[in-house]
Simulated scan of single mutants.
Amino acid sequence: MTQLHYEKDITALLVVDPYNDFISEGGKIWPRIKAVAEANNCVPHMQQVLTAARDAKLRVFFAMHHRYRPGDYESWTYIAPIQKAAWKRRSFEFGTWGGEFRDEFVPVAGEIVVSEHWCSSGFANTDLDVQLKKHGIHRLIVIGLVAHTCIEATVRFAAELGYDVTVVKDAVADYSDEMMHAALEINMPNYASNIVTAKEIIDALRV
């Protein structure tokens, strides 16, 4: 692989779904991803990459899943299976601890939280694309949850829109090793220019 280099003025870190329900002990979804997340030190690596991006003065964007509210989906004609699951579990319920940012990932001044996505892609029906373009961003470094759903969908959509994308493979997690393998080894290499480790990204951002 060629040496990684990221121009600071056109590169941003995109953090996907750092909710307590996903990545904190006691979260509704944490038990499902805990084994994979702990095996690759996903959450510590996410923290390290976020710190490195901030230290390097990269812009940081947050793409957050829709937080459950009473009445969601009830009048919809069609509901995707992933949305039915979120509805049933009340994932990331608005106004609850599970629907809040984990403390280490609370945005700081100047960082941008885009409008919430309803399914998986951080771009679909949100303002992420226009926010990136307005800030002159062409390249994305992506971390967060879950590899085969929101991460993969966001990476695919980014590629369709012309962004250059890097995925940090040990700063994402999934429900099983098989799902991680499918996302990182089979599907995303078609769309992400680089799939690298947290250490490789951190070293590149220090240059």
Score class of each variant (00 low, 15 high):
37 A>C: 06
194 N>A: 08
45 H>W: 02
155 V>I: 06
89 R>V: 10
128 L>T: 00
79 I>C: 06
169 K>E: 01
204 A>S: 02
82 I>D: 14
80 A>P: 05
33 I>K: 01
175 Y>F: 03
196 V>W: 00
192 A>M: 02
102 R>C: 15
204 A>Q: 02
6 Y>H: 10
91 S>W: 11
100 E>S: 13
24 S>G: 09
102 R>A: 12
70 P>S: 08
80 A>D: 11
199 K>D: 14
147 A>Y: 05
126 T>E: 10
155 V>R: 02
163 Y>S: 01
75 S>C: 15
167 V>Q: 06
148 H>K: 11
61 F>Y: 05
39 A>D: 10
125 N>W: 11
124 A>F: 15
73 Y>P: 07
29 I>Y: 06
88 K>F: 13
11 T>M: 02
42 C>I: 01
85 A>F: 15
93 E>S: 09
126 T>W: 03
59 R>E: 02
173 A>K: 04
90 R>G: 05
21 D>Y: 00
163 Y>W: 09
73 Y>K: 11
114 V>M: 08
102 R>N: 14
67 R>H: 09
129 D>G: 08
28 K>Q: 13
48 Q>R: 06
69 R>L: 00
13 L>T: 09
135 H>P: 15
34 K>N: 04
160 E>G: 10
103 D>H: 13
19 Y>D: 10
65 H>F: 03
111 E>Q: 10
154 T>P: 12
127 D>F: 11
105 F>I: 10
9 D>H: 07
117 H>C: 09
